[in-house]
Write a protein that binds this DNA or RNA. Structure first.
Lengths: 247, 247
DNA sequence: ATAGGCAAGATGTCTGACAAGTCAACCGGT
DNA sequence: ACCGGTTGACTTGTCAGACATCTTGCCTAT
């Protein structure tokens, strides 16, 4: 077999170098200067051209600043993405990284036709069949989020959510190699807790909730999932690193 | 004078190519394939290595997807940053782009020692002298945001805010070439309108507001400004494009 | 029909060179 | 002693060409 499976393909050298450089950056203080490109390339075992492509990604993320004729400097090490919004991750993944335990409550999994709002969010005809997963996520016993994911049946069926379902539809979608998810567009707003949400989240009725709605896009720009989340403030700290518009 | 001023320095070829490629991408449909690198490089008048660095930035932003041995494809054209959070812009700039008029009310400009909270946000000793600018921004007559910017006097003085001050401290800081601002870290949460905010923003007391606090960093990672903003929901739609964590 | 080989064409990487910017040390004239 | 320009070392920016590797589809031998 000449075609090798994606799973056991070796990492491209660029990616190896990227991880290695990330470690180097993490070990340096802010404002410190990196070694010159030629020696850094030798150190990482790649050519200067490849190294420069790698560095470009870090510049794009705002972690490195280059000054022509002077050098390359560590700008701000985004601290291993604590709960930053640049990268889409499931609450479960974030909580696990912070060493916290999550539980699922009020779990409800149904297959039914999409409502008009859901159809619009999915960019699909109204009434198309979708899988709807609703649940409340608790971290260390405290309810922190009310989540609803809507996915067309073509992408996910109810039976694929095994009994070990920990509440993350996203993690399941990410593990379907055929989908090749790329980006998510997340809208941010606020909402007041209705009677129902107040009861489910254990907060006073009318208290302010952080509301996020998101569309998950595959590489060909199809909407794979449409999700609505309500977060109880104070439990998760969301932040986003923003680039200053370049001159 | 052998050293030329930053203002009239020619754009590096990479940046020219970046802008040209952005236009090409914008003119293409999603999923469409780009020309091969060699011909694209010729078309843009740069070498393949430079073109690849440029492409890397678009890949990093999720606008291009590359498949080894196959080609490069247009993924999703982030629609010319409507009010996305990836790039830091002033409300004034956003509103102007949308063709709306802004006004400033309750403007208050004082120089005084920093409060403990402000000092912590600025990562400076408590009581250091700062410039504090507070105001309410209205768009088309409707109050939409209550803003407070805190800047150490070393970076900005009250007298630098001319009489034509349109409410954007950010735009003034961006136009100070010596600062070289790079990134901003913005925390997102919610708050309920207190008596004071309710009156200033013309909303019922206790209604939910979107709260953002941000630190503005210069290239050497000094905090140049610390700002707190309260947004009336519904007037601005904030969203953020999130990358899926790479495998 | 089908499996295997093969070649075309795409991205991935490397090498070595030169261009351009920055900074500091140096040096001559005042 | 001071000031101004020059030089040179060192950095990032860009280039050209070559080869490696991956994917795909065609084409042939079975």
């Amino acid at each position: 077999m000449t075609t090798n499976r994606a799973a056991l393909r070796m990492k491209p050298r660029r990616q190896q170098a990227e991880e290695a450089l990330a470690k180097i950056i993490a070990s340096m203080k802010t404002g410190e200067q990196l070694p010159p490109e030629p020696s850094l390339a030798r150190q990482l075992g790649v050519s200067r051209a490849t190294l420069r492509e790698v560095m470009r990604t870090f510049v794009e993320r705002g972690m490195l600043v280059r000054r022509h004729g002077v050098g390359t400097f560590v700008s701000s090490r985004i601290p291993a993405l604590e709960a930053g919004l640049e990268v889409l991750e499931s609450i479960d993944t974030i909580a696990r990284r912070m060493g916290l335990k999550t539980e699922v409550a009020h779990l409800e999994i149904v297959e039914r036709p999409a409502t008009p709002t859901e159809a619009r969010g999915l960019d699909r005809p109204e009434g198309c069949d979708v899988l709807v997963v609703t649940r409340v996520i608790s971290v260390e016993g405290e309810p922190v989020a009310d989540l609803r994911d809507v996915v067309p049946l073509a992408y996910l069926r109810a039976r694929e959510l095994g009994d070990g379902f920990r509440g993350s539809v996203l993690d399941i979608l990410l593990n379907k190699p055929a989908l090749l998810l790329v980006t998510s567009k997340t809208q941010i707003s606020v909402a007041k807790a209705t009677e129902k949400f107040a009861r489910r989240l254990g907060v006073p009725r009318g208290s302010a909730l952080l509301k996020m709605t998101a569309q998950l896009y595959s590489y060909d720009d199809k909407v794979v999932a449409f999700s609505t989340s309500y977060f109880v403030p104070g439990h998760f700290q969301f932040h986003v690193m923003r680039k200053v518009s370049r001159r």
